[in-house]
Design a protein around this nucleic acid. Structure first.
Lengths: 202, 202
DNA sequence: GTCTATAGGCAGATAGAC
DNA sequence: GTCTATCTGCCTATAGAC
């Protein structure tokens, strides 16, 4: 096999640019307060062009959640493959949220959860999938950490995983009205402190 | 002073009935996915009648948050006046959320926080007021509990208060997609366990 | 793939009769 | 206080030209 030179990194195509803009808008305003017009204005194209790529708003919404969920999953997989310690996994998990928030964005699926009842069925399923995936990854990391003695918590890993997700999503949500990332950071630190307290360092 | 007989408890007037219906709908669907038409249908009146009582949607929204916030505050004040212990205050605080959720409702201000950027300024101010009030009450209870030794946590009471609020709001939010109150209860139990762990019972 | 043009619907809001 | 009627605007979505 010869080493074939890679083509220069191509600019994202229209579908990806649409998703980029739509994602940012939905993270800021939610799905119901977001319109094809918002995206069209930002990309300097017409709403008709948008409908060519994503005929219905529900399809655009589902594509948003799928891409977001896959991107999130790859971040988690990276930590697994790097053989990260339990504590650095938990720290890394919190960091993903903190990065999002420092860009002034909410978690896409967190925002959508608040509108869950009004969303099309495909999106609802995809959103639950996102949280299930997060919970499973966290629960596995927590159980391992408990065995190793570097993390301490009452109850099972699944419940604690849900608590962590709920706590981080809630803290993110509430930090938006105050436009203050520190609000999130303080809560996250507080949360991790509770898990690490009295356990021996990893 | 003679004992004057009280009039029979009068039915709630139209404004209150409007708020009742609107509150339930917003808690389920959010502010942006809620319309005068929804309320009008439920109360069997026209949207024009609604506009007589609440001329603009933003005024209806502000009235919703004010009433909700006042009702919540009175629940907290009741616990103070009953001289409840720190632990029973924290348990009681969680119970308020659990009751709401068991009626299939989200916290009104939690839902609205997710739509914060799209809301009129008056509503934004009122929503922040709700969270500030909750945080102050919890922080005071936590600090007292720490002094008494019946509650244990790292950092200051304010940060822990924010963590509790964030955690409960997030857990509520995420329990909606799963239609499962147990999801919330497990998280809340986990949270309280962490606070009570190793501290001596009150 | 993107455009112009437009259909069809629903939203918030107002005027004026009763 | 509640109604009918209506205005205006924005939204999702489609048809057809380029």
């Amino acid at each position: 096999m010869s080493i074939t030179p890679q083509p220069p990194p191509s600019r994202p195509g229209t579908p990806a640019r649409i998703l980029d803009a739509a994602e940012r808008i939905v993270q800021a305003r939610g799905f119901n307060a977001f319109s094809y017009g918002d995206v069209a204005t930002e990309l300097n194209i017409t709403t008709a062009a948008l409908h060519y790529h994503y005929p219905r708003k529900s399809e655009l919404g589902s594509a948003l959640v799928s891409r977001y969920s896959a991107r999130f999953a790859s971040r988690l997989r990276e930590m697994d493959e790097a053989g990260a310690s339990t504590r650095s996994k938990l720290d890394g998990y919190v960091r993903i949220y903190a990065e999002t928030l420092s860009e002034g964005r909410m978690c896409l699926c967190g925002v959508l959860a608040a509108e869950y009842m009004t969303l099309p069925a495909d999106m609802q399923t995809a959103i639950r999938g996102f949280f299930d995936q997060n919970e499973a990854w966290l629960a596995a990391a927590l159980e391992r950490g408990k065995t190793e003695g570097c993390v301490e918590f009452a109850g099972c890993g699944g419940d604690t995983a849900r608590m962590i997700i709920g706590c981080l999503q809630g803290a993110m949500l509430l930090s938006m009205p105050y436009g203050d990332v520190k609000r999130f950071t303080a809560v996250a630190t507080c949360l991790l402190c509770g898990l690490y307290r009295q356990a021996r360092p990893s």
